[in-house]
Design a protein around this nucleic acid. Sequence first.
DNA 1: CTGAAAGCGCTTACAG
DNA 2: CTGAAAGCGCTTACAG
Lengths: 341, 341
Amino acid sequence: MVTIADVARRAGVSIATVSRVLSPSSDPHPVSASTAQRVQAAALELKFVPSAIAQGLVVRRSGLIGLVVPDLSDPYYPNIASGVERTARNASLSVLICNTLGEEAHLRDYLQLLRARRVDAIVISGGSALTPSELDLVAQLDAPVVLIGRPNEDAEARLAFVSIDNVAAARAVTQHLVELGRKRIAHLAGPATQSTMQDRWLGFAGVVEEAGVDMMLLETSGAPEEGYREVTEALSQRRRRPDAIFAATDRLAVAAMAAIHDARLRVPRDVAVIGFDDIPLAAMLRPSLSSVHQPAELLGQKAIELALKLAAGEAVEPIVLPAQPLFRGSTQPVVRGSTQL
Amino acid sequence: MVTIADVARRAGVSIATVSRVLSPSSDPHPVSASTAQRVQAAALELKFVPSAIAQGLVVRRSGLIGLVVPDLSDPYYPNIASGVERTARNASLSVLICNTLGEEAHLRDYLQLLRARRVDAIVISGGSALTPSELDLVAQLDAPVVLIGRPNEDAEARLAFVSIDNVAAARAVTQHLVELGRKRIAHLAGPATQSTMQDRWLGFAGVVEEAGVDMMLLETSGAPEEGYREVTEALSQRRRRPDAIFAATDRLAVAAMAAIHDARLRVPRDVAVIGFDDIPLAAMLRPSLSSVHQPAELLGQKAIELALKLAAGEAVEPIVLPAQPLFRGSTQPVVRGSTQL
DNA sequence: CTGAAAGCGCTTACAG
DNA sequence: CTGAAAGCGCTTACAG
């Protein structure tokens, strides 16, 4: 591998000069134009690119961001990762991916690894899914940390986070179901350990109560198969069958639609369905799936912005972004003679 | 930040000893048990974790893998990323994520960045989508490179890759459609610039020709909206309407199902549909979507394994894995009186 | 404008 | 078994 010394020799200058030309600091050191040119030429000929490792050692910044995700294969996270990645790149930072699979042991290992790599900041998506003991681990980090998703309980006060307003969004979609004239609305919930899921439930319950319509709570761990079972079960109770379902995630909503279909019922005629997340395929389903659009890219972007502020020693406030309800075919008003998308 | 010198002082030993205890090399240097214990204790008290940056500089390995993906939000890639990540972690490697969005300029920037970081190897998923000039960039890398997806043309001979057998899988699913008695089968193709997509077309065309059934080729860039338009158009031609569609990806298959639905036709009765990739939601769609299961995690794993061999100076052969057709509701034989899932 | 030199935090022959 | 010292490839005061 070619080093700065090779370039210096070739250009007939010191390595200090090569460094000044090729890696100008924020307060650039003057170099004569002709020297600079010779250095550039030499670097090009030798295809020299300075070692980020050596640079990192002396400037004491790795230029690395650690991105912790619970599960890359969950369609919700890649969009966040994408926003994080894009924003990080614009700030000349690289993203190290850490897939924890929801395991505390993995999280622990990864945090250790990120410490070893001296990452400039850590972004944890799925922040609302962290258990108290996981939050402890996170709070003890010396690197700046930003969560995506509001953490549970008192950790909220200590940790920086960006989140959407889950309560407000849940209220909006539930209101929509009420306005559709639905009389018995079920919430197909995700894991209650997550503040995100709690908030969706809270928004739902509030509106349902105010409107005085019947409600059902179908609890799941978030797995589609479980959602399918719960909905199937609920639909089998003839007398107390829900006529609308607000699913806490689009994956659960898709499972709900499958269960409804298999029960020989129709969406939205017999049961209206609305999800949450607006996964890419939502609009292509039939009926197209009503959902709440999460500004996933923006969440990722804001997370990095907060992280950079923290790294710069600034104080930050949590950021709460609005989420956009999107009403599609699965909650279309049923009009006699009309067709459903 | 606490350094090795702090630990050495605390434990009353030299930094060399600390290093030997905390970061034993493959050929471990002997250290007395009591000394080792003192060092461990000191490290624990000080919460010392050795700098991977400093280590990287001296051992001249970064412990980093660059993972290049065209688009994280495409549901096909996260599973690959997940396999890469898991396998890399087991080999004590960290994964740097590079989202190119299919842009050559981004690829160029990222490859430069990965050189700067002295990554131990580079895995490029979407290898079949690389243009000739992109392949040139890749071929000039000095780091070991493994593509996921067979590269086009002559680059195949020069670059290591892992891939599934697209031709065989496409043959299998097309054969299935023929055996269903379908008489006019359309292929909803992805971008023809990708060898993957070419292979799926090749497998399809071969079987269709042998069977002597009618075929149609619907070309797209891979975007679902385009697939929707193409299928809608094809279905509107009453006389030449396809009664089966083999979509090159599940995203296109979902778009096809939407188009069929909107044309007031039924899947699989009027038009059978089969996709490719077996995205997580495929089994939850109604009808459930027949597809080809890609061993995405395994592809990621094999890619890292190849990369490690290359990094160790070994010669490697391309790996071609079988892909598993999964026949579900969308290609179920239509029997009088039976119901469709 | 240029360079010699110290130093970032480690590993690893080398010597004992 | 232990340590002193060189060196990995850079940046950046410091001196000129």
